[in-house]
Design a binder for these strands. Structure first.
Lengths: 204, 204
DNA sequence: CGTATGCTCAAACGATCGTTTGATTCCGCT
DNA sequence: AGCGGAATCAAACGATCGTTTGAGCATACG
């Protein structure tokens, strides 16, 4: 039918949407390939297995997120005029904006699922992809919060990540109102998160 | 074999453990009943279906958590001497302590999974069980934070819940060190969370 | 033109799932 | 002791899963 997009990309797009709705185990390859308009065997032909497909769905989005985060961090890292909120914005905004581009809003739910489902395999995969990013952000946070020792800083960054993950997954009480555009809602979320995190990070 | 505990309770205990490890879809009734030492048909006989079993696993723990939370809140609610940290402790400590009693530590992972997997069904279930609890806590937070309007307060409570959920699920960077007992680690987590949340809630 | 290569397709494979069945055992009660 | 409902059991049911197969189609190259 529509061959303007390749079979591989159609599978990836459909997989992202279906994984978000039904979960990794809940989404069958038959639903997935039907939704993508491709043959059932195409997944195993192009990706090798369902599990490899899951990894590719993650890698595609996480690479973009990491690059975006590091680019924003590079703009402010090390500068004397940089405020804590600037680093938090580099950490938070790309994550929230990922929910806005293309089918990205679904990916955030996929990511929330992933943390819970794939116990060690995917967690190690995420750690490998995020490790150096967290290291750079931690170093910059440490520069701006010299009064905190390492252990204390780790604790607080972890709690910020928790609040961010919660906000990204869209599971909280806060729901977007009908009279607010998705972009406005994302901006509100980012603003609240940054102020909340700044207060939690820098409190005495 | 061991009939000191009933078949129903053995199923519930095994289900909690297995759901935490493999997820709701990943854990099969055959694994579950084998682990519990009961017949395969016992689940459908005593609970009606696998889905009903899932609900019971949640209800058992959530009822206890809600009662515990409300009891702690009642000790401080409305009193002039009550500080923000006291209400936060009533909100946070029972949740973290749930990870300590019996097989409760596994339940936190079950809960984290549940948020991601059961899209609307379980979310509605949790909302029904948690609704009145959240209402009471929100009212007390509003009393101690009169400078915040309702919308702002909802945002901040939501972010606190995110940090709490993250900490409970044990998915963060922070891992318990070997020279720290589980109880000490829980106390550290609670202390960090309360201070972090208090700063995030009450910042100007 | 013939052939090689990359891709798609319908169909089937074996495995595993949740659930149901019908017989059998257990246990309290008259 | 004997009846009757509750509980347990082995076995099977139909459905669905991820994966594999082998034939068919397309396009590019000699």
């Amino acid at each position: 039918m529509n061959s303007s997009t390749s079979t591989k990309e159609r599978i990836l797009a459909a997989a992202e949407a279906l994984f978000a709705q039904r979960g990794f185990d809940g989404a069958s390859l038959r639903q997935l390939t039907a939704s993508a308009g491709v043959n059932l065997a195409a997944v195993n032909y192009h990706f090798g297995s369902k599990e490899k497909l899951v990894e590719q769905v993650f890698k595609r989005r996480l690479d973009a997120l990491n690059q975006h985060r590091l680019a924003e961090l590079a703009k402010v890292a090390g500068k004397p005029s940089t405020r804590l909120e600037d680093v938090l914005a580099a950490y938070i905004r790309p994550a929230l904006e990922l929910s806005h581009e293309g089918n990205g809003s679904l990916f955030m739910r996929v990511l929330a699922r992933a943390f819970a489902e794939h116990d060690d395999t995917l967690r190690q995969f995420l750690s490998e992809n995020y490790g150096h990013v967290m290291k750079q952000f931690t170093a910059e946070f440490a520069r701006l919060l010299p009064q905190l020792d390492k252990a204390e800083l780790y604790w607080r960054i972890d709690l910020v990540t928790g609040a961010l993950t919660h906000a990204m997954s869209g599971f909280g009480m806060i729901q977007r109102k009908d009279n607010v555009t998705e972009q406005q809602h994302r901006e509100q979320t980012a603003a609240h998160l940054i102020r909340f995190a700044a207060a939690g990070l820098s409190h005495p």
